[in-house]
Design a protein around this nucleic acid. Sequence first.
DNA 1: CTATTGATTTTTGAATACAATTTAGTAGTC
DNA 2: GACTACTAAATTGTATTCAAAAATCAATAG
Lengths: 233, 233
Amino acid sequence: MNQMSEPLIRTTLHDELVSRLRDMIFTGALRGGDRVPEQRLCDMLGVSRTPLREALKVLGNEGLLDLLPNRGARVAILSAEDIDEIFPVMGALEALSGELACARLSDTEFAEIRALHYQMALHHARRELQAYFKLNQQIHEAILKAAANPTLEAQYRSLAGRIRLARFRANMTETRWNQAMLEHEEMLTALQDRDGKRLSEVLRRHLENKRETVKQAIQDGAGEAHGVAVAYD
Amino acid sequence: MNQMSEPLIRTTLHDELVSRLRDMIFTGALRGGDRVPEQRLCDMLGVSRTPLREALKVLGNEGLLDLLPNRGARVAILSAEDIDEIFPVMGALEALSGELACARLSDTEFAEIRALHYQMALHHARRELQAYFKLNQQIHEAILKAAANPTLEAQYRSLAGRIRLARFRANMTETRWNQAMLEHEEMLTALQDRDGKRLSEVLRRHLENKRETVKQAIQDGAGEAHGVAVAYD
DNA sequence: CTATTGATTTTTGAATACAATTTAGTAGTC
DNA sequence: GACTACTAAATTGTATTCAAAAATCAATAG
């Protein structure tokens, strides 16, 4: 028998569009507050309005788009108030992910996270911001994965997506960066000890500080000067 | 002129359908695992397939429906594993709502919750289960409202909705009911003291116990004998 | 009798067509 | 010149149509 070369990942057009639009929002192809004429998007993506509209409804439900009846969809804009609203929820979810991760983490999983951590520490020492961000994100992803709770993961990603609506130049202060690194040290220790209580506390605090960084950043660059870099810590 | 009996709260058909379908799922008009032929639903609701399908996509994204490409939508079924997955997340969210509520609760808000509490205690003493459930739900709603965080509220409601997919006869053991009542006493105290830390702990524990009750219930009535009552504690 | 193949029916996916609402644009009046 | 009333264009909401996939079922081979 022939060896099934094709992955045959047959997805519906609708699903594809949800991902595509999400990406367009995250990469800034669709800017916050922009009106999104359906026909234009259809031409751009080469599909008819029907599946596109299905996708718009889903993204609206996720909070990435504002759907005004008879007046089209707009890319949602994130106010400082929204951030104050979202971060505590993300904090609670990430704290839980820390607890669960500690309860289930295997030694090999921990080893991987530790490796990521030291690599990140290196980038921190060299003041390589982008590389640091990348690793940082991978660490949080790894913890979330280790929690092994798809529902938690989905909820977290949804909120993280909304935060990404705020496009800003990621400029941490020196102090904040050092502090973040210290928090990560603490995380690693807590993970090593499988101390869920402590890890969840650190993650919460970490995210609390992150909120301030983000708010500062969007206030600085408010209105204009949208940075492309969205990663932050 | 004829007197417009219709409420005429003109929202889009799509939005209306999302609510309607949600209700149909919650009330059991659509049973878990049931296939949902689009045309049948359209006839039933008097709309065309287009807005209906938009609604299906949204509910699918929420986890209330399973959308199988080319094979239609099915009302999602909740396994015991799903419950173990969802409850911790709800616990984290409710714990946060407790903390936020304590931080913001006004005296009049507290008074209202206290009133609800005592009324519920009365129903508990009289062993009026349904009435107890009702009040119980109102109390949790009040705390959630007091937290004043729409994002948190939305996330919580989404998960609570998924839990409601599990239709079971709510039969608490005597012991569990008494325990739940004690936990509620503790909640009230914590609220009165505005002790967020304690309240969040109680809520977490409360939900943890609730999980066991629910799992027990769906195991007992697994497969058949779907109760109508979904409220529980 | 069972299993497999193939045609028929049903159901879903996507595109088009039509209706209703909003937006813009223009003319007219004060 | 600014404001209103009205008309036309554009955009969204909904229905219908067409195409593709899956489910059903009958016939045939083993």
